[in-house]
């Protein structure tokens, strides 16, 4: 085995893993606060990617500049989804919670298809083909930037949850819904904000992915599944676990391409998922169930 190639794949995997972590952070936040699994997660991410793509084509705004705008658009989308649908199903049995969100994913996916057509699109941004050589290892500049920004956004989310008033309300509502209501927190609105924040996080991750892979309406559910795997690796609702799980999954998928065709790398991640669910359902970093 070529050690340079292996090193290359390890670095690429870790860089991609940071973005996986950010996607999963949103999912984990939504689960942690409301106990709902967002089956439309990847599809929301794709929406942000199309917004960013649009801004790039229409105003030639670089994706890194439109990141905030695209994330804000998905923030609003997430807020509306929570306010109109998810708040009504929180007390449903788990079975009935799954279906509306699956349907929501179906709606978003086909809205993307309707508005932007089935073609694969790869915007040629200023940095998309630039590379950097560190010794024998080649690094895509856009991948490196994506990783750094993903980590930065993750840290920002942590600070937001720890330091701001809204962040504290979110943690209070996650911890004890009744208690939060008793001390006067408008829990419905906090839920809306939490879902919106989770959506915006995945939206930002999507924009970071935009220079790295072709965009198509049907790519969303792959990322929903990726986010599930990461979150189960790290433990449902565990935010640091999401980040570490992302790094592990990125690494596993990348290194798997040494032994398997790239199109089979997801078999590795799904198998990892099943094994983790069987033996450590609380996640690698969770405490006792």
């Amino acid at each position: 085995m070529d050690p340079h190639l292996a090193l290359q794949l390890i670095i690429q995997g870790i860089l991609l893993g940071g973005i996986y972590g950010l996607i999963a952070l949103g999912l984990s936040l939504i689960f942690g606060v409301m106990g709902v699994i967002n089956f439309a997660h990847g599809q929301m991410m794709v929406m942000a990617m199309y917004v960013s793509y649009w801004l790039f084509i229409l105003l030639s705004l670089d994706p890194y500049l439109s990141l905030v705008g695209a994330a804000a658009a998905v923030f609003v989308l997430g807020y509306l989804i929570q306010a109109t649908v998810v708040n009504r199903i929180l007390d449903y049995p788990e079975a009935m919670q799954v279906l509306p969100l699956v349907a929501m994913g179906l709606i978003l996916e086909n809205m993307a298809l309707l508005f932007w057509g089935p073609d694969h699109r790869s915007p040629q941004t200023a940095l998309s083909l630039q590379t950097l050589w560190v010794g024998p290892v080649m690094i895509d500049v856009s991948r490196l930037i994506a990783f750094v920004l993903a980590i930065a956004i993750t840290i920002l989310i942590f600070i937001f949850l720890k330091k701001t008033n809204i962040g504290k309300c979110i943690r209070a509502a996650a911890d004890n819904r009744t208690g939060a209501i008793l001390v006067g927190i408008d829990v419905d609105r906090i839920y809306n904000t939490s879902f919106a924040l989770g959506a915006a996080t995945t939206g930002a991750a999507g924009v970071l992915l935009l220079p790295l892979m072709p965009l198509s309406p049907h790519m969303g559910h792959d990322f929903t599944l990726t986010a599930f795997i990461v979150v189960i690796l790290g433990g449902m609702g565990n935010l640091i676990g999401a980040l570490v799980g992302g790094l592990i999954l990125g690494l596993a998928e990348s290194v798997a391409t040494l032994f398997l065709p790239a199109t089979l790398k997801q078999v590795v991640s799904f198998s990892l998922l099943v094994v983790i669910m069987l033996f450590r359902p609380q996640g690698l970093f969770g405490g006792k169930k």
Binding site: A103, M104, L106, I107, E109, N110
Partner: peptide, 13 residues
């Protein structure tokens, strides 16, 4: 194309 699936999704919700 895709509009019928959007209607479906709305109906299911």
């Amino acid at each position: 194309e895709g509009l019928h699936l959007i209607l479906y999704g709305i109906l299911a919700i």
